[in-house]
Design a protein around this nucleic acid. Structure first.
Lengths: 108, 108
DNA sequence: TCGATTATCAACCATAAGGTTTAATATCAT
DNA sequence: ATGATATTAAACCTTATGGTTGATAATCGA
């Protein structure tokens, strides 16, 4: 049951096919067929992946004749990135979890 | 079939209970029981979530008597963050997908 | 209009995820 | 030693995911 926005986002990003599609979209708009081509799977399968990306707000589609052009929407990627940056201090080694705790006790 | 490192990472982050646990670990080391308490679910369930976090490399456990102390490991969060920062230009509005394509054609 | 192309929908299948409960294991306290 | 505490393991259930194929819908080209 994926209800939270971040759930949907991170779940969408957890599949290599979908991350590949996002990477392909860096080059600009692409049709569903073009996005599907590099991935060894049926067109319908690829279309479902695009559906996941679209519902996660990562991709936007517009009709162009009988094809559908997909483009990247960066805003949601930013939400994910913002969430991750909460922990910048930890991976920078500037803080270790215990240090943080002590510091907060001291400051509070 | 979660084989890729990023798959495991993003999948681990796609659950609100697990993100909550990571947040709780910002305050320093916590036992499994302490991490489980805020989440309305059995201890075994919470333990499984911690297993997911551990296998994703986001959490490390050490034995302390009969309890297990968990602490946050930032490195993997950084991997996820690094991956996301690829798209910084897009969400900053500095580039739009089409622009990028045109620019690359011009530069190449 | 007819057939080919592009994409989605529907139904289905196998497997994984998230949850439960009931053991099992290890450690502490008495 | 015994019993309580802390955690994981096993078995199980339900629902979600990722994939398939075949049908449907919309649009292009001739």
């Amino acid at each position: 049951m994926v209800d939270n926005r971040l759930d949907t986002l991170f779940l969408a990003l957890s599949d290599p096919t979908r991350r590949g599609m996002l990477a392909d979209l860096k080059g600009g708009e692409k049709t569903v067929g073009e996005l599907a081509a590099p991935h060894r799977m049926s067109l319908a399968g690829a279309s479902k992946h695009l559906g996941v990306l679209t519902r996660a707000g990562l991709v936007e589609q517009r009709k162009a004749g009988r094809q559908r052009l997909c483009r990247l929407k960066g805003e949601r990627l930013r939400e994910a990135s913002d969430w991750l940056l909460q922990w910048e201090d930890f991976w920078n080694g500037r803080l270790d979890a215990l240090e943080t705790a002590l510091r907060e006790m001291g400051d509070g």
